[in-house]
Design a protein around this nucleic acid. Structure first.
Length: 305
RNA sequence: CGGGGGGUAGAGCAGUCUGGCAGCUCGCGAGGCCCAUAACCUCGAGGUCGCGGGUUCGAAUCCCGCCCCCCCAA
């Protein structure tokens, strides 16, 4: 069988894992990814995961500011199909319709649940029992097209977003490579999503990681697992009469402990606690605004808890 | 020219505004107490107050320059 000519479009780790899998099972005519953005303290322009893999495998790499402007270039690559994962840009419909077999998208959730930018985080945040990866035909609306195939994944309730992303990425790669030939031969029939059951998730912001005394322990722990490494969970404390952000980098539940007349930040022996709505967290590592990461012991000493 | 916080004993921090004995908590050492302890008590060691210059009788503190760390924003 002739390997399909695939044009890959994606950006992050999830996408890069899929690109790697495609390398063996298809002819990659090109990889489109976001241009390198300045990041980190030195504002370095680092290659994203897809760019790294593409260079490693000698796949032609394209990094247009807007993919819509590259229509002619992409057309010249004569792909059979477009495979999109975690790209981070809206792709114009004329690009989606460019290859004879259209565009497929791998979305790390069980569509129509968690349409949008942060499906993996949302599954953890909402305490889903099960999630998965959906392979779908793209149409003009976001994560809206007919479903080609699905693979499920049961959640333990303890995984972090990074762990879950890694699992879903490899499942996505397996789902795509096993399904793509059948799709191209027309032996699988995509079926429409139940649009009435759709839920949507929005992009994350720093503010979403804020917790305080009105947050429940369950919420806080879900946020803690969903928001690593960014935006993380944080609260505010008063230092020298000024409010400061305290990033909570390592926490766990303070089991069997219900603080009553304590401050929001409190101490019990050598443990540092944060009082929440229905219990407390043990803070093991945190970072005060402008300071380095500190273990609980140093925070107790410095903050005079 | 992006906005801001910081550098003081091994660790984390006060003190700086308003110049006048180098402090706090922890750790470390010695001793004590105790059936016992990471608890408690007593004593002790440990400082180039980031670096350089200036003002002053006197600078961690005020002025000028420099180095380094971090938060936010992108």
């Amino acid at each position: 069988m002739v390997k399909p000519r695939v044009l890959f479009v994606g950006t992050g780790f999830f996408a890069a894992t899929i690109l790697e899998a495609l390398f063996d099972t298809s002819t990659l005519v090109g990889a489109v990814t976001q241009p390198p953005r300045p990041q980190g303290k030195n504002k370095e322009r680092l290659d994203n995961p897809v760019a790294v893999v593409a260079k490693e495998k000698n796949v032609p790499l394209l990094t247009p500011d807007k993919i819509g402007t590259s229509f002619e270039v992409l057309e010249a690559l004569t792909p059979d199909v477009l495979v999109v994962a975690d790209y981070g840009q809206i792709i114009p419909e004329r690009i989606l319709l460019l290859p004879p077999h259209g565009a497929l998208n791998l979305h790390p959730s069980l569509l129509p649940r968690h349409r949008g930018a942060t499906p993996i985080e949302s599954a953890i945040l909402e305490g889903d029992d099960i999630t998965g990866v959906t392979l779908m035909v793209m149409d003009s609306k976001m994560d809206h097209g007919p479903v080609v195939a699905v693979i499920e994944h049961k959640l333990s309730g303890n995984e972090t977003v990074l762990e879950l992303e890694a699992v879903l990425a490899s499942k996505a790669a397996a789902l795509l490579t096993s399904t793509l030939p059948n799709y191209l031969e027309g032996t699988v029939t995509p079926h429409a999503q139940e649009h009435s059951k759709a839920t949507f998730c929005k992009m994350l912001t720093r503010e979403k990681g804020y917790i305080d005394g009105s947050t429940t322990v369950l919420q806080a722990l879900r946020m803690y697992r969903a928001y690593q490494p960014w935006p993380g969970i944080w609260t505010t404390v008063t230092v020298n009469n000024k409010p400061k952000r305290l990033k909570l980098l390592k926490v766990k539940e303070w089991k069997d402990f219900l603080p009553e007349d304590t401050n929001v930040l409190f101490r019990n022996d050598d443990k540092l606690g944060l009082k929440l709505a229905d219990g407390a967290l043990i803070i093991e590592e945190a970072q005060l605004e402008g300071k380095k990461v500190q273990p609980a012991k140093d925070l107790i000493n410095g903050l005079r808890v």
